[in-house]
Amino acid sequence: MTILKALLGAVAAVSLFSAPASAQTYPERTITVIVPFSAGGPTDTVTRLVAESMSKDLGQQVIVENVGGAGGTLGAGRVAQAEPDGYTLLLYHIGMATSATLYRNLAYDTLNAFEYVGLVTEVPMTIVARKDFEPNDLKGLIEYVKANKDTVTVANAGIGAASHLCGMMFMNAIGTQLTTVPYKGTGPAMTDLLGGQVDIMCDQTTNTTKQIQGGTIKAYAVTSPKRLKIFPDLPTASEAGLPGFEVGIWHGLYAPKGTPPEVTDRLSKSLQKALKDENVIARFAELGTEPSSEADATPAALKAKLESEIARWKPVIEAAGEYAD
């Protein structure tokens, strides 16, 4: 017993020593941003671009660690349990909000496990189809799929993927259930769309821009509030016949619950600076997206976004009845 007590005492002492990272001198060592997806994906790309720029401002290296698995919830769970000292951060996309409903037994409480740093970017989506698909505009598409709802197939990159979410939202918006064809990742889904094996898909510009430009797939609309600079002729979904249909894959930067506000503020400032970095802006533009505004790259804006998005997706996911566990 005494040994056990001594051990417990030692553990307590250790945690006492390590807990309060002095906010004035932050950051004193390397910061790790956990990306809950594997290296090379869109979220990883966004993170690495921003991390590189933040390193310059913070005067400490900001490195990226990929902890993939279970739609990003494993990496988020890791950060939820990390020490709240500002040296372990999380960059997670819209999945932060949707996983709260998609997964019925998450290892963390989405709204109470994190502190907020700020929004990073919101990648728009495009509604696309195989290049020889009959309809030529969004109105025509909606009529066509309603008339042929038994034969039209909608591809997605697996449960919880951007294309899955957008597809659900689309079917919800037009009030028609179509046959969904899930794939393991965007690659195979896009291959089958190019090969004409499936009909339509709704996916991030990151994945569709080059294919649209190359004329290998047909684009009907973007799901952002404004038209995109790279596709000035492509209407928004609102303009083309689906008023209010807006879906964006937004990315946010989080810290574990209990991180001192001085630290998250410092990180917000740094994030805002990084989002004005010309290199970041240029690279984001090539991905078909823009950095979030200074007003959005704040803890308050991210918190509001997360709360409103959880509320928005909950009924859509529950109506579709598709869960990830």
Partner: peptide, 20 residues
Amino acid sequence: PVMALMIGAMIIQGIVPGPN
């Protein structure tokens, strides 16, 4: 998966791979 990593590397470099 290795090719997926290659695409990631291309995107980081500002080249979004596509048919063109």
